[in-house]
Simulated assay, not measured.
Amino acid sequence: MICTTNKAIAEVVAHLRQHASEADDRQIIGIVGAPGTGKSTVAHLVAECLGADAVVVPMDGFHLANTILDGTPLKDRKGAIDTFDVGGLLSLLKRLRSRDEQVVYAPAYRRGLEEPIAASIAVPQSARVVLTEGNYLLADDGPWAALRGLLDETWFVETPQETRLARLIDRHVAAGMDREAATDWANGPDERNARFVHSTRHRADRTIQWN
């Protein structure tokens, strides 16, 4: 099982379990990486290893909807930092941090539909670990800077560039783009976003090499 056979996953799972054995608080972990690094995969694998104690809450649930983006310059850079509802993300993390509600419902992002879906993820009060993953959790521009204070730890996921680009192109094709357009988007808007994300890497508490 990957919980024990993959060194990177085994290490972070053991780390979270050790903390849970010593304290009864909730840990909120931010998992950061450029588009296509596999941060969602890492988050879900860690949650699977931890079982009912863990829930994944993706930052992508706070994408601005296409009805907001359509007809604006933002449409051509969907996925950039200014195409997210950072205020909504901050409000959710504050609620998860306070842990004073029986359940908090978080939005998810539906690939294929390419839209956020409200109240799709239930985070019960009993959940000891919340794994939130996204590109910009380590950004320190404007309101984004407040995110770091709501996270107990941040992990930065790194993947070889060739692998990352191949994943991105395949993802865009699966969402309906032709391969040429997918390649252009991966090497254009996605790559600009990736460079920004990498500029925040030094703020992370831990780096995970993910191939």
Rank of each mutant, 00 (worst) to 15 (best):
D82P: 02
F84H: 04
F84W: 03
G61F: 10
R26Q: 03
K75D: 09
I68L: 14
T83V: 14
V55H: 05
S21N: 13
R26M: 05
T41M: 11
A54R: 01
H63M: 09
D53E: 14
K75P: 04
P35K: 02
V46A: 09
A23V: 14
G36V: 00
D60M: 09
I28M: 11
A54L: 02
P58T: 09
V32G: 03
P58G: 05
A54Y: 00
A65L: 07
M59Q: 09
D82Q: 09
G33H: 02
D24P: 06
D25K: 12
N66S: 14
G71E: 08
G36S: 10
I68S: 12
I28E: 05
K39L: 07
R26E: 03
H63S: 06
E48P: 00
K39R: 08
P35I: 01
H44W: 05
A23F: 12
A47I: 05
D76T: 15
N66C: 08
P58H: 01
G38P: 00
P73V: 14
S40A: 08
D60G: 02
G61Q: 04
G61W: 07
Q27W: 12
D24N: 13
I68C: 09
G61M: 09
A47C: 10
D76F: 12
I68P: 00
G79L: 07
N66V: 05
I29W: 06
D70Q: 15
A52C: 13
Q27S: 14
G36T: 00
K75G: 10
K78A: 08
D70N: 13
A65H: 13
I28K: 03
F84S: 03
D76L: 15
